[in-house]
Design a protein around this nucleic acid. Sequence first.
DNA 1: ACAATAGTGTCTTTAAGACATTATTCA
DNA 2: TGAATAATGTCTTAAAGACACTATTGT
Lengths: 224, 224
Amino acid sequence: MTIVTSDVIILTLIDGNLMVGLVERDHEPFEGRLALPGVFIKETETAEDAALRAAHDKGGLKLSHIEQLRTFSGPDRDPRGWSASVAYMALIRHSDHQSLRRFAPHTGEIFFVPCSLPALRNDLPFDHALMVEEAVARLRGKGAYSTMPAAFLPEAFTVPEMREVYEAVLGQRINDSSFRKAVARLEKDGLISRSGSRAPSGASKRPASLWRINGVSTFNEKIG
Amino acid sequence: MTIVTSDVIILTLIDGNLMVGLVERDHEPFEGRLALPGVFIKETETAEDAALRAAHDKGGLKLSHIEQLRTFSGPDRDPRGWSASVAYMALIRHSDHQSLRRFAPHTGEIFFVPCSLPALRNDLPFDHALMVEEAVARLRGKGAYSTMPAAFLPEAFTVPEMREVYEAVLGQRINDSSFRKAVARLEKDGLISRSGSRAPSGASKRPASLWRINGVSTFNEKIG
DNA sequence: ACAATAGTGTCTTTAAGACATTATTCA
DNA sequence: TGAATAATGTCTTAAAGACACTATTGT
């Protein structure tokens, strides 16, 4: 028996913590356990189609952009026999979570748990813990050299907000001055632009300028 | 019918030209045509095992390191029906080609053709042309930031030889002075080391110092 | 005025690129 | 000695990091 599935690692940032979306499995093996959303690939679709379907049907999320992570395969990863899973990763804004869910209110619920939770390592079925680990590693790897982490930001955002996201993704403090210089370079290159308006002074004091991203891109210089 | 295979993109550098290894297909579809070495994945092995087996059984090459590129899947890529191919890439020294082949002299022959050959685009079956394109893109992408291209170099090599390899991989001239500074940094970080001896003055004049790589690695600074 | 965060300017260090200069061999 | 390539040194520019300083709001 050959089993070919797509699993999707949906990452989001909640209060500076990197979270991964899990759903309750509705059939054996591991029925009732939390796992990455996944489906069997149909003979009429691509692995990517299947990953989008998994996110929609199991997690209730309508994803727009996903990226293939890698394929995990072998005779031992599924108790039913040889299997292959094409793993995809997606980044979503947590604020969009609610509105995205409205597209598919009939589906199961998706739970976001911290990627760093030690229990994940033991509690996730199959090799899902490894998948999460590799997805986070790729995000961190691309973090310093692309606007990829900006996928976590709302449409309009401030420089301090953007820096917080990068700090959370990279897991380290970023020099504020260097970061602003990088932002200035991004603006010069047309990768981001000022949004004109200003943010309501949230918790405290001076309001910050608003910015927006002009498409996800990779660049040469390190950001932060 | 579900078809799950592994294909391997074997790249090498011959006289400054990036080449890809092709073999003659021994069964339908596309029997007798040149294509990437590939096999059906057995129920006892992983996709990576299968890729190594493809390189050995079809191409006569005993590869040590391969890297997963990505999985290509869908109902339309194989005339027999839905299929998935887990694609792997490998870099070999052309000088090793002969000795590697001695391990499996009974197998079919592997032919190396230039990656840039326009005919590849039309002549390769399935989506193999796309696979080659993506493999070359990844090599170029990693080229400036890792010792990956050094896989094309012999055990001991000179700085000018190393620079030529990087120039061929990146497809552009590299500033000699900057490159040597990068080499000095690599030495300081223990990623490469002087080999003591000196190269026989090949075609002409002053001999160069020999160097060796201490494992493939990724680094922060741009090389070249 | 003061607190608090947003944002700018300056200095040092490091690396890339351009280019002149020196070093070592062969013919 | 001259030709040819290997290797080093110097100068400029740009970016990262550290840190002092100014700007703009609410209270």
